[in-house]
Every structure is written in structure tokens, then in C-alpha cells.
């Protein structure tokens, strides 16, 4: 008997679709990314308390700052502290997303889910794109909840609708940049340790900015660092767009906040996205 090339198979396996050409490839990449993100949506539905806590935490912080500390807070140029605070809290909610990204990436890598994905013939971008989609959705939800709550405690935007949209756009752009930092950190450092470090770091990063108090009230050197915190540029620009009290000095970085609120995130993405792609292609077990 001669050896033939065809093998008998008792199970008739389905034939996979194959991307052919650039357009088809792009379509698959989107579909694959969406399928991966869909997994996160299912997680939320199965474990709503997890996402619920994530949404509740910024709300608690608003309560704390408006009612507990707000009485002794003053805005340098006058103006209502709640109005001053809320854009900072919106940005803070974006920063809290960093820990969520790192947690998700680290957990998937440690459990071998990432490797399962990588062993499939899907678009190589899909895991990261899916992560990005899911995180952006989650942060958009967090932002919506916080905006609603902000209005309950007296915050308003005074500009046009377009300006308000631009403000939310800048906040989500900051979150987008943080996704890539989070993915890179998550791939780089395995284990629970990385998650704790990032979650602890969120607070100094958030507080060392103009989110809660004007940088002019800080010692000069500290205020300068806080002014150059990318988060501060976003907060200042967003305050301007919402027509909330801005209260900044006249240094270059604070005067050019709207520009830097775009430049900082793009710069961070330009640095961290290639790092993520490089790291993702060659993960050791």
C-alpha cells in the first residue's frame, strides 16, 4: 500500500474564511478586534459588580472633595470649587482606567489567554485593538456616569455643545494614550505586583497635577512638575472648553494647554504603541 497525502478525518471541520487583499484584511482586523472586545462586554454582564465598583469610586471621590474637603478649598481667581473640581475628576477617572488596563493585560497574559489568542490565525493587532476598544467603552461609560453625577452636585458646562464635545474628546484622548502605557506595562511586568504598583501610582500621578488644587498654591518646583504633568494640560484645556474656572499661571506650558492636551497623548501613543507591538510579537512564557 502506498502512502497517500489525504488523511481520513471523521470530523468534518468547518473551513475558515481567509482574508485576501488589503481591504479584506482590514475588515477582518476590525471584526477580530471587536470579537476580542466583545469578550470584555460579556465579562461585565457576568460580573457587573466589578465594573460597578470602578464606576462608583470616582463618584465617591467627588463626594469627598465637594462635601468633605470642598469647604476649605478656594479657587485662586474666585469661582466655584465644584465647577473647578469636576474637570479634574473627569481626568482622574481616565487615570484610574490605567489600572484597569494593566490588570486586564496582566491577568490574560498570566492565565495564558493571550497566548491562546496569539496561536489563532486572527489579525495580530486584534488583541491590543480589542483591549483598546473595551477600555475606551468602559471609560466612556465611567465618564458619562461622572458627568451625570457632577450635574447633580452642581457642575455645569457653560460653553457650546461643540465645545463640550471637544472637552470630552480631549479626556478620552488622554485615556487612549493611557491604554497603550497600560498595555505595555501589563506585558512587561507579570504578576499581581505590577497591578498594585500601578494602582498605587495613580494617586500621586493624579494629585501631582492641577486636578484638585491650582498649581500656583504649590511650591514653585512642585508646581512646575505638576504643570508639566500631561494630565494637567488636559484638565486646563477641558476647563476652558466647559467654561469652568481655569486659574492658571502664565508659563508657556499652562498658556498652551489646549495644544498640549493634544500633543501629550499623541506623543505617548507614538512612544508606547510601537513598544507594545514589539513586545507583543515575542512574549516569553
Amino acid at each position: 500500500m502506498s502512502v497517500t497525502e489525504t488523511r481520513p478525518t471523521t470530523t468534518e471541520a468547518p473551513l475558515p474564511g481567509r482574508p485576501r487583499g488589503l481591504a479584506s484584511r482590514a475588515r477582518w482586523a476590525v471584526a477580530d478586534g471587536w470579537a476580542v472586545a466583545g469578550r470584555d462586554l460579556t465579562h461585565w454582564m457576568r460580573q457587573p459588580w466589578e465594573i460597578g465598583f470602578g464606576l462608583l469610586f470616582p463618584v465617591l471621590m467627588v463626594l469627598m472633595f465637594v462635601y468633605l474637603l470642598g469647604g476649605s478649598m478656594s479657587v485662586p481667581d474666585g469661582g466655584d470649587y465644584t465647577e473647578y473640581l469636576m474637570p479634574g475628576m473627569f481626568a482622574m477617572a481616565m487615570v484610574f482606567g490605567l489600572g484597569e488596563t494593566v490588570t486586564a493585560v496582566t491577568t490574560d497574559a498570566a492565565r495564558g489567554v493571550t497566548d491562546r489568542f496569539r496561536s489563532l490565525p486572527m489579525a495580530s493587532s486584534a488583541v491590543v485593538v480589542g483591549r483598546c476598544l473595551a477600555d475606551m467603552l468602559r471609560s466612556t461609560l465611567a465618564l458619562s456616569v461622572l458627568v451625570g453625577f457632577g450635574m447633580l452636585v452642581g457642575w455645569r458646562w457653560h460653553g457650546t455643545f461643540t465645545e463640550a464635545l471637544a472637552g470630552f474628546g480631549l479626556l478620552l484622548l488622554l485615556r487612549f494614550a493611557l491604554v497603550w502605557i497600560g498595555v505595555y506595562v501589563g506585558l512587561l511586568a507579570r504578576g499581581q505586583g505590577a497591578i498594585s504598583v500601578i494602582q498605587t501610582l495613580e494617586f500621586p500621578i493624579g494629585f501631582l497635577s492641577n486636578a484638585f488644587v491650582a498649581t500656583a498654591t504649590m511650591p514653585l518646583w512642585l508646581g512646575t512638575i505638576a504643570d508639566w504633568n500631561p494630565m494637567s494640560s488636559t484638565v486646563t484645556a477641558v476647563r476652558g472648553l466647559f467654561g469652568n474656572p481655569v486659574a492658571v499661571g502664565d508659563t508657556w506650558i499652562t498658556q498652551n494647554a489646549p495644544l498640549m492636551a493634544v500633543v501629550w497623548p499623541l506623543l505617548l501613543v507614538a512612544v508606547f504603541a510601537p513598544l507594545c507591538v514589539h513586545k507583543y510579537r515575542d512574549l516569553s512564557g
Binding site: P16, P19, A31, D32, R46, D115, R116, F117, P121
Partner: peptide, 22 residues
């Protein structure tokens, strides 16, 4: 080296991977 998602059901896992096999 390759695991399944613990929060999803068995069926959801297989469907997800099936979709990623296009």
C-alpha cells in the same frame, strides 16, 4: 501555554475562538 477564559462559559469560549478562526 494556552488557556480559555474563566468567566465566559464553555460555549462562549468556543464561539469566540471560532469567530477568531474566521
Amino acid at each position: 501555554n494556552a488557556a480559555v477564559d474563566e468567566i465566559l462559559s464553555g460555549r462562549q469560549n468556543l464561539r469566540l475562538f471560532g469567530r477568531l478562526y474566521h
